[in-house]
């Protein structure tokens, strides 16, 4: 009797989990199935294509000029990542492990900037970026700095890393201190090797962020030379109109790199995201 009951419970649990998984996955399945249809089928009611039209992908790829946008997005992501990681790691370490006057106050101010509605920052940031380009040695507008530098000082990344760094036992630090190593050495030799998981999160989130940004890249680029995939995809969606089989092919093309990245990092990624929620 008891056994039976726990068995029904297990079955019930699985049923619910599978239902949840289906709801998560159905949009993806529908996307792939539609992307392989003809336009007639796509507007019609059949769920699956009668024939697989893989040429939709080449058509979407060429029409949206995805190759260039991909390259741009990858370049932008790489540069942001290098900048963001080095800056956030330093700052997070500073906030987590070095005592200095005003530390909590400054961190509080940083956190409060996360509440600011983004659209007020667009025009002032545009002005700042233009000016930096005029004063500085390199072009900012229509070049990588405007697309990456403003996002390198990410409060969220600092917050995430700080949470992690703060959990590293003090004994490790004291031991390092006795060996005579300073903060930088401790950071690079002990803390960073331990921090693969949050760094994965930053990697994936930076990737997604660059795949998601729309208004800002459009404003600071004048040519397709640096426009990211989000802009390309958006243009394509507008241009393709009701040709949804192409749009779905484009959507799948846009998602693939992130899916691949996510599958490789998902374990550390989800665990680290989980950790960020502790100690709110």
């Amino acid at each position: 009797m008891k056994l039976n009951r726990s068995r029904t419970l297990t079955i019930l649990t699985y049923t619910l989990l599978i239902l949840g998984a289906l709801l998560s996955l159905v949009p993806f399945v529908w996307m792939i199935s539609t992307s392989l249809k003809t336009i007639g089928e796509a507007l019609g009611s059949s769920f699956f294509p009668s024939e697989l039209h893989f040429e939709n992908y080449t058509e979407a790829w060429d029409r949206a000029n995805f190759s260039q946008y991909f390259l741009n997005s990858i370049k932008i992501t790489a540069i942001s990542l290098v900048g963001s990681v080095s800056i956030s790691v330093l700052a997070a370490y500073g906030f987590a492990r070095i005592k200095f006057p005003g530390r909590e106050l400054i961190f509080g101010i940083l956190l409060s900037t996360m509440m600011i509605p983004a659209m007020v920052t667009i025009i002032p940031n545009f002005l700042t970026v233009t000016w930096l380009g005029r004063i500085g040695p390199i072009k900012w507008i229509n070049n990588w700095p405007a697309l990456t530098v403003p996002f390198m000082g990410s409060v969220f990344n600092i917050f995430l890393l700080r949470q992690f760094f703060a959990q590293i036992p003090d004994e490790l630090f004291d031991a390092a201190r006795i060996d005579g190593s300073g903060h930088l050495r401790f950071l690079f030799q002990i803390v960073l090797p331990l921090s693969k998981a949050p760094l994965m999160v930053i990697l994936v989130l930076t990737f997604i962020g660059s795949w998601n940004s729309l208004a800002w890249p459009l404003l600071v680029t004048n040519t397709p030379d640096w426009r990211p995939i989000s802009v390309g995809m958006m243009n394509f969606v507008t241009e393709a109109g009701q040709e949804i089989h192409y749009i779905m092919a484009g959507a799948f093309i846009t998602i693939i790199p992130i899916l691949i990245l996510y599958f490789f990092t998902q374990k550390q990624f989800t665990e680290s995201i989980a950790r960020s929620g502790l100690k709110g």
């Binding site: 800056i87 956030s88 330093l90 700052a91 370490y93 500073g94 906030f95 070095i98 400054i106 101010i109 940083l110 900037t113 600011i116 007020v120 920052t121 002032p124 940031n125 700042t128 530098v149 403003p150 996002f151 390198m152 000082g153 409060v155 600092i158 903060h183």
Partner: peptide, 16 residues
């Protein structure tokens, strides 16, 4: 340690 991040956040987060 926090200076570079602060500079950027000031420029693109607080100044705006």
């Amino acid at each position: 340690f926090v200076a570079p991040a602060l500079t950027l956040i000031f420029m693109f987060g607080i100044f705006p």
